[in-house]
Amino acid sequence: MAEFEPKIVAFCCNWCSYAGADGAGVARMQMPTNFRIIRTMCSARVDPEHVLRAFSKGADGVLVLGCHPADCHYIGGNYRARRRIALLRMVLEQYGFDPKRMKLEWVSASEGEKFQKTVIEFVDTIKALGPNPVCSKEA
């Protein structure tokens, strides 16, 4: 059997992480290609429903990337986001998911390197965890 290649959805804030991902690409940094980026205007735009929908449709992991605290384009969006994500993490744990399947990370526009590092680490984590339990249940 071929090695398990996880599918990862990455929500990137338009103002920093998306630009950071862009920077990583322009600098030709090497990283796994398991992730699909969805650009959002702010990490607070990521409704927990989006994350749950990603899991219910078979994503093996979800990354939420936003501006560093005190650095939000909309002043307080990331503070809201981190509280929501904390609650969502509790909900996912109650469902039986490993909370490591969802990660919130702060990546600024200049941090291509951090983006690369985050993706590499997250893909390793998900590979260790195995496929999404929602999917394996149906199969």
Partner: peptide, 10 residues
Amino acid sequence: LIKRAVNEGG
């Protein structure tokens, strides 16, 4: 969306 408890490890 998830509907029920899931078991990690399939």
